[in-house]
Each structure stands twice: as structure tokens, then as C-alpha cells.
């Protein structure tokens, strides 16, 4: 009875199909929005990995490079480094060459901020940060090698991530200084066992 009634109203069926489609569209919208971060190939971490090998800094330029990354601000120079701390912590350093401003952001592989610091919040304005898992840093703290009193230890559960170091070029005359500062930045695996033995 119901079916025959519906069959007589073909337009009603089309309306029902459209409604079903709209509900499906809303569901698909939510599914894409929520799952996009998991499968995106265009996110910042994937692009930094595409720059080249891990654990070294890459300067970004004004034009998108082959990985599709560029610096967002004409006056802010930046350099990025992807790291993997599953084996050993990573140490991020850069000497203080008198740049007017620098800031360092550490992110996990899904681009969530883990830690950030700038020249005023650091000790002596020097970039010296060790990022490690809680287990690695517990071992490190037990026998802290000499010269690590001012190192900032950052704990994270995520073993993969990236760091971005920025510096501001207030005037063109600061350009070489800022370039030198960023080019001297290191992002290397931290081998503390060999050093703490003596």
C-alpha cells in the first residue's frame, strides 16, 4: 500500500533522493574535514621531509621551493629542520650573533606546537634546546654533561616533528648577520653517552 502510494508520486521519490544526498554530503564533509590531517600530503611536516635529509636546517626563500615551502613574511627569515627522536634526542643550537630578534618553534608531526622560545626567554640569547622523549631526558638529567646548565630540555611523547627558527631583518644592513645566524644553526642528534663518559 505504502509502496504503491510512493510509486505514484515519483517526484516525492526524487525529493527523498535529494534529501538522502544532502545528508550524505554533510557526512562526507565531516569525514573529510576530520580525516584530512591524517592523509594530507601537503602539510608542513611532509613538505619539510621533502626538503631533503632529516636533522639539518633548510633555509626558506621568498619563492616556494621544490617542497612547496616559503617564508611567509618578507622581513622574517626562517629555517626549518625535521627530526626523529626515536633513537636519540635532537639538539638545536645557534650562536647569538647579535640579531635583533629570533624565535624557535618546535612542532610535532601533525603541526601541533610542542614548545616555543625567543631570544628574551632564553638564557643569554643563545639557541640551545634539546628535544627528547621523557625516558631519554631522564637519563640525560641523571648525568648532565658539563656545559649544559643553560640548555633547555623539552620533553615530548611524539618522536617525529620539526623545528622552525626565525629571525627578523629590521633593516637591510642586518641581512648578512641574520643569514649568518640562521646558517650556523644546527639540528643534530644528541649523543650524550660518549660525552658523559669522561
Amino acid at each position: 500500500m505504502f509502496r504503491r502510494l510512493l510509486g505514484n508520486f515519483f517526484w516525492l521519490k526524487i525529493l527523498f533522493a535529494i534529501l538522502t544526498g544532502l545528508v550524505g554530503a554533510a557526512l562526507l564533509h565531516l569525514v573529510i574535514v576530520i580525516s584530512l590531517p591524517q592523509f594530507s600530503q601537503r602539510d608542513a611536516y611532509t613538505r619539510i621531509l621533502a626538503e631533503g635529509e632529516n636533522q639539518r636546517f633548510y633555509r626558506l626563500s621568498e619563492k616556494p621551493d621544490r617542497a612547496g615551502l616559503l617564508k611567509d613574511d618578507p622581513m622574517v627569515e626562517m629555517t626549518v629542520c625535521a627530526f626523529d627522536i626515536s633513537e636519540a634526542p635532537v639538539r638545536l643550537t645557534a650562536p647569538n650573533g647579535g640579531v635583533p630578534f629570533w624565535s624557535l618553534g618546535v612542532y610535532d608531526s601533525s603541526s601541533n606546537e610542542v614548545f616555543s622560545i625567543n631570544d628574551r626567554t632564553s638564557a643569554d640569547g643563545v639557541v640551545d634546546v634539546v628535544v627528547g622523549t621523557p625516558a631519554q631526558l631522564t637519563v640525560l638529567r641523571k648525568s648532565l654533561p658539563r656545559g649544559f646548565a643553560q640548555t633547555v630540555l623539552v620533553e615530548t611523547q611524539q618522536t617525529e616533528g620539526y623545528a622552525a627558527l626565525r629571525s627578523l631583518t629590521t633593516h637591510k644592513s642586518f641581512g648578512p648577520l641574520v643569514s649568518q645566524f640562521l646558517d650556523q644553526a644546527t639540528c643534530a642528534p644528541f649523543q650524550w653517552r660518549s660525552r658523559s663518559q669522561f
Binding site: S40, R42, D43, A44, G68, G105, F115, S116, N118, A164
Partner: peptide, 19 residues
Amino acid sequence: PYAKSHRANAGRILYASAE
């Protein structure tokens, strides 16, 4: 979720809170 999806798609390196 929209902000996370947007940043995963845009692929920009955002300013962290101390930056």
C-alpha cells in the same frame, strides 16, 4: 577540526605562541 584540516592542507609553518 577545521583549523587542523586547514593547516594540514595549506602547509604553512605557523607562529608558535612565544614567536
